[in-house]
Computed example of a mutant assay.
Amino acid sequence: MDVPELLESASLLVPEDAATENDITVRDIWDYLVHDEWEIALGLLEEFGGTCSLPLEFWGKLAEAAEELRMERSAAWCHWRCSEIRNGVIRADLTLRPAAEARRTTPISGAGVLRPMWDIGHLSPTGNRAVSIASLWVESMPILAPGGRATVRLVPLTPSHWKHVQPGRQITMHEDTTVAGTAVILEVHRPSTAMPAR
């Protein structure tokens, strides 16, 4: 499929009565598509993800269109949303330790590149701390500097490890044996049970 077909196909997956925070509807998207305003249409379609639950197929088509348009951050975000549907997502309020107190002295990328370890309360068979891995996306910021604080989205590598995690719980982030940051869980969304065919 080419970009217009991908965007048209994705728009058909949005509920007809859905609207973004700015009251953009699917009809508005079609106006942009008719006028070959593909980048605008893509950006607006992404906004629907914050207002309604959309299927894996929707995000897959948007990711493909973003890649064709060479919109790297949009493509990364759409692939990320696919991962959230497959593995679930945990939103948390993360505070990184200051550079003077931690091993990290440089900002972390906000675009889902980092896959840190998290102490979420598991113990190894010998009674030592066991960590679980989850990728990290920083909401509304391209980077997060040491000592910074932001709302983040975590996609677990092994969703079953995170079944006990609930809002309000504090967890710690590790890039090595030291604590890199602390996070308080805000929301937990389990993996989708019904996977649409591609």
Rank of each mutant, 00 (worst) to 15 (best):
L44T: 07
V89I: 00
D28L: 01
D36L: 08
L56F: 05
R70G: 07
G148W: 04
I108P: 02
T126S: 15
V138M: 00
E68Q: 14
R97D: 09
R153L: 14
W137I: 01
W59A: 04
L54V: 05
A99F: 10
V138G: 03
C78A: 15
M117P: 12
G112I: 00
D36H: 13
W77V: 12
D17W: 04
P159C: 04
I133H: 03
I40L: 13
D17L: 04
L123N: 11
G121Q: 02
R129I: 15
T106L: 14
L123E: 14
C78Q: 06
A41G: 04
A134Y: 04
E101N: 11
H79F: 08
R27E: 00
T95M: 09
E139V: 11
M117Y: 10
F48C: 04
I40A: 12
S160T: 14
P146C: 04
I29M: 01
S109N: 09
V34D: 05
R73C: 07
P156M: 03
S53I: 14
T151Q: 12
G88V: 03
R73T: 15
T51P: 05
E57G: 03
L136W: 01
A111V: 13
A134D: 05
P146F: 07
I120V: 11
W137M: 02
R115Q: 12
D23Q: 14
S132N: 07
P107R: 00
S83E: 12
S132H: 08
A18Y: 01
G110I: 02
G88D: 03
V152P: 07
S140M: 08
I29W: 00
S74F: 10
H35R: 13
L54C: 03
S109W: 06
I108A: 02
W38N: 12
E21V: 12
E39V: 15
D119I: 07
S140K: 12
L33A: 00
G110K: 01
T158L: 13
L69C: 10
G43Y: 07
T51K: 11
T126D: 12
L123F: 09
R86H: 10
A41N: 02
I24H: 06
T25K: 00
R153K: 15
P146E: 01
I90F: 06
L144W: 02
E57R: 14
R81D: 06
H79A: 11
R153F: 03
S53W: 07
T105R: 15
P156W: 01
K61N: 12
A41W: 00
W137T: 01
E101T: 09
W80K: 04
R149H: 05
R81Q: 15
W137P: 01
R149Q: 10
I120G: 03
A92D: 05
L45D: 05
N22A: 13
W30E: 02
D31E: 12
R91N: 10
F58L: 02
W118N: 02
T106R: 09
A63V: 08
W38R: 11
G148M: 09
L45C: 06
G147M: 07
E47Y: 06
L44G: 09
S135N: 04
